[in-house]
Nucleic acid binder design. Structure first.
Length: 200
DNA sequence: CTCACGATTAGA
DNA sequence: CTAATCGTGAGA
């Protein structure tokens, strides 16, 4: 995906990223996951965003880069969250990737997730949540700020395109954000079993 | 320096 | 439902 893809409207990108493939070429091997659930975070006007009212700190600095960079942070002292930065430089908006469907490198994903013997139902737990997918894909704070238009961590179109049944809902776990928790900026592929929460 | 707080997850 | 777990950043 080239730079221009990431400079558009954030909610449009949140929708457009569904069905695309996130690829990570790491020293341990290559993993690929199909994006099935996203949320838009609209920067200065969004009480749920780390950049609300222009708040800018060392931790959130990468969100101020131009569209097409990664913004990764640690949450609850133990999990990582992966975001795709959108819009131009100093427009701190992003798309939070909440779930993937494993496509390639499933053995490596199982190892990283500590589910070596996993099969059947357990395979669903590889990437069905923001912290889980970072673990499975080997994404951590080292990856924050990386250019997604590069050749290490990037996003591509699937070989064959398909029609997706896209659903919308409220974003998850942002109770601290007052009225913003009602805004329907979460997108997911209907009936996809890797979506993190099936409830509304 | 202190301390409250998470864009989560696993497990009871 | 709650505990786990710790870097960050606001405030003293």
């Amino acid at each position: 995906m080239d730079r221009s893809f990431y400079l558009k409207d954030t909610l449009q990108i949140a929708k457009d990223l569904l069905g695309k493939y996130l690829v990570h070429e790491s020293s341990e091997g290559r993993t690929v996951g199909r994006i099935v659930e996203t949320e838009g975070y609209l920067g200065v006007e969004d009480p749920a965003s780390h950049a609300y009212e222009g708040k800018r700190t060392e931790r959130t600095e990468d969100q101020y880069r131009s569209g097409g960079h990664a913004y990764v942070y640690l949450i609850y002292g133990m999990y990582h969250c992966f975001n795709v930065v959108t819009r131009g430089e100093d427009e701190p908006e992003s798309v939070f990737v909440r779930a993937l469907e494993p496509i390639e490198g499933k053995e490596l994903m199982k190892e990283r997730r500590g589910l070596k013997e996993a099969s059947g139902k357990k395979i669903l737990e590889l990437t069905d949540g923001p912290g889980k997918l970072c673990m499975a894909m080997g994404i951590d704070e080292e990856d924050s700020g990386k250019d997604l238009c590069g050749d290490e961590l990037y996003i591509v179109w699937p070989s064959r395109e398909e029609d997706l049944d896209i659903q919308t809902g409220k974003r998850i776990n942002i109770d601290y954000s007052r009225e913003a928790k009602k805004w329907p900026w979460r997108y997911y592929i209907e009936d996809n079993e890797y979506v993190s929460r099936k409830d509304r």
